[in-house]
Each structure stands twice: as C-alpha cells, then as structure tokens.
Write a protein that binds this DNA or RNA. Structure first.
Lengths: 140, 140
DNA sequence: TATTGTTATACTCTATAACTATA
DNA sequence: TATAGTTATAGAGTATAACAATA
C-alpha cells in the first residue's frame, strides 16, 4: 500500500500524531473522567485563578457556546466555583475548589508522565525539538 | 494568561498545530468540496488503483462504517467507481474515473502548495524535521 | 469460523443564530 | 454599540452492534 505522498504532508502527519497522543491521553485520564479539553480548562483555571470563560475561549480556541457545558460539568463535579468578577458584572471569575486542586495536580502528574510513553520512539532532545516546531506552526 | 504548562505538553501542541494546518486545508480545499479524509481516500485510490475499502480503513485508521458514506459521496460525484475484486468476491476494487484523476491531481497540487503557507514560520529544513518526528510518534 | 461491506444508531465535537445583562 | 455568558440547534466526526455474502 503506497502512502508515501500522504506521509509527505504536514497536515496528514500532524493529524495522525495528534490522534495517537490523544488516544494515550484518553486511556490514562479515563480514571479522572477528564477529556483533553476538560483537562486544559481545569489546568488554565489552576494556573490563572479568577480567569473568565471568555479568556479561556480565546486561549484554547474554543467557541463560547461549547465551553458552557464543559464549565457546568466541572462545576457539577465539585471541582470549580464561579465568583463575581471584581470589576465586570457581566463576567464571572473561575476558581478551583480544594477537591479541584487535588484532582488537577494528580491529573497534571499523569499528563507529564504520559509524555514519555506517547513519544517513546523519540529521544528527550527530539521531543523538545518537536514541541518547539509545533508551537511555531500554531502560534502567530 | 499563563499557558506555559499546557505548552510543555506534546498532546496539546500536536492538537493545536493539527487544527491550525487543517484550518488552512479546509479553506483551500473548499472549492473542490474535499475535507481532509475525502482527500486522503481519493489520494490512496489514485496511488493504489483497485484498493479495497478495508485496506483504506487500515491505512487511515478509519472504522469501516464511517468509510461507507465517504465512498458513496465520492462515487455520487463521479470521481470513483467500484469494480469486482479479481480474486475475492466479497470485496470491491476502487478506481478513479477520468474526472476523478483530474480532480485529484489538481487537489494534490493545492495540498502541496498549502504546506508552505501553513508552515510559513518554519524553514524548509525545520519542516522536514517536524514531519519526520511526527511520523515517529504515530508509526509503530 | 473469519472477513468484507453494509445498515442503523448513538454519542461527541464543532459551528451559527439569537437572546440577556452589562460595559 | 460592543462584550460576557447563555440557550437552542444543526451539522460533522466517531463509535458499537448486528447482518448478508463470501472466504
């Protein structure tokens, strides 16, 4: 089966690699009930207490209507709370609960460990180079 | 907004980069009515005349029920035909029509050109390195 | 018994329009 | 006028079960 041409395309390789890594992520995060975007949102709140939904949408390139359900789900599981924004009464600041802090730190350890397994054919140096080049592609 | 931790993760970077490149792909391929998987299927048939649905599923990591609609769509647009498989009466060989060959070659030119724009912050050498490392991640 | 291709179907992901409260 | 958050909804992508025909 000749797949040489497809394998010469950046889009094809990026999509295949992303799906492979996300596959490992889904397996390892299944015990936490966290999908990739759930983890990203939880992690942004952990590192940016009081962040708003709109800021998260901009940072992660998510459409606002699609974030609503994610925030609701994290809140219903007792991991985040919404507090009034200090200066803008339209907005709400998002914060982790104590349970949320515990879960996020455990999930972050899992995410960090998962790297090595998902990228096991790469040396540490190759992995760093790969991540650097990927960032160059999507950061403008 | 602190996104440093997320940007240290392979999965996050791979997903963001793949979505960025696919975004450019969708724009450029819109005149042809081809989405990424449509193009991949058409291209595999072009480079492997007589290939079966099952072989395409294996090569592209698509589930058989999800390929049925794609093949039907390509067929209804007059780009591919199914012929009896020479040795296996369960299977059908997929082939491009003359119109399909013309369209695929035009789309392939577009896909090749698109590379440079989607990866414009990278040098040619960096782009080659990136694709090499991505293949290492998903090919086992 | 196993495989190819298919139908039906459910679930998730992504996108658009329109609304409210506030800036 | 513009923005933050929300609802409703439509479309695209992905997954499983089950079937007929053939190996």
């Amino acid at each position: 089966m000749d797949t040489h041409y497809l394998e010469s395309l950046l889009g094809y390789n990026a999509r295949r690699a992303a799906l492979a890594v996300i596959g490992v992520f889904l397996q390892r995060m299944e015990p936490y009930g966290l999908r990739p975007v759930d983890f990203s949102v939880l992690t942004l709140i952990a590192h940016n207490p009081g962040v708003t939904s709109r800021q998260i949408c901009t940072a992660l390139d998510i459409l606002p209507p699609n974030l609503v359900g994610i925030v609701k789900s994290l809140q219903s599981r007792g991991w985040i709370v919404r507090r009034p924004h200090p200066t803008d009464r339209r907005a709400q600041g998002l914060h982790l609960t104590e349970a949320g802090r515990l879960l996020q730190s455990q999930a972050q350890v899992t995410a960090t460990q998962l790297e090595n397994d998902a990228a096991s054919p790469l040396t540490a140096r190759e992995l760093d180079t790969l991540k650097l080049l990927l960032r160059k592609v999507y950061q403008r």
